[in-house]
Simulated assay, not measured.
Amino acid sequence: MTSLYDFKLPALEGGEIDLSQWRGRPVLIVNTASECGFTKQYEGLQQLWREMGHSTPDGLIILGVPSNDFGQQEPGDSGQIKQFCQRRYGVSFPLAARSIVKGHAAIPLFQWLAKEGGFLSRPRWNFYKYLINREGHLQRWFTPLTPPHAPRLLEEIQRVSAQRR
């Protein structure tokens, strides 16, 4: 796989998310969990989605990838995850089906992210963030300690968003 656009993921609500549909748009990929100390970051991610995402045809895409890999903090099925995210945080950005994001069993997207970002970019907890540029390559990654409203994340999103193909 050579870029983000080469991947497809099962969608939380069934069907498939073909990442090639977002060609030319910046994408923020986040491995999420509903029972984590960082779960409140859903609120900030939804705010970013409202402010920078769906309102413009080339705006930021946010993709949540729920995972039960860290502390068994995403135990629910797709229906429970969807209900929690919508009811608690009003999440309307795309969510993939619950996936494995670490180790040899990680889904191909997260294997690619680990290759692009190097060893330290591999998620070691929930809410790692991966910013993909308009060309479909990893621009920068952030640990869960960087909330969605952190100036350094916002600055990097602005930088990527300002780039034109």
Rank of each mutant, 00 (worst) to 15 (best):
N133I: 00
N133E: 01
N133K: 01
N133M: 00
N133G: 08
R134Q: 03
R134S: 10
R134L: 04
R134V: 07
E135C: 09
E135W: 07
E135Q: 15
G136R: 15
H137L: 10
H137W: 05
H137E: 12
L138W: 10
Q139K: 05
Q139W: 02
R140I: 07
R140F: 02
R140V: 04
R140L: 03
W141E: 01
W141F: 15
W141D: 01
F142R: 10
F142Y: 15
F142L: 02
T143G: 05
P144K: 13
L145Q: 14
L145I: 03
L145N: 04
L145S: 09
L145P: 05
T146H: 11
P147L: 00
P147G: 04
P147C: 07
P148F: 11
P148Y: 13
A150R: 07
P151M: 05
P151L: 11
R152K: 11
R152L: 10
R152V: 12
L153V: 09
L154K: 10
E155P: 03
E155K: 05
E155L: 13
E156S: 07
E156N: 06
E156R: 08
E156H: 09
E156W: 03
E156F: 06
I157R: 08
I157L: 08
Q158L: 14
Q158R: 15
Q158H: 12
Q158Y: 08
R159Q: 10
R159C: 03
V160I: 13
S161M: 15
S161H: 12
A162M: 11
A162R: 12
A162G: 11
Q163F: 06
Q163Y: 01
Q163N: 13
Q163P: 06
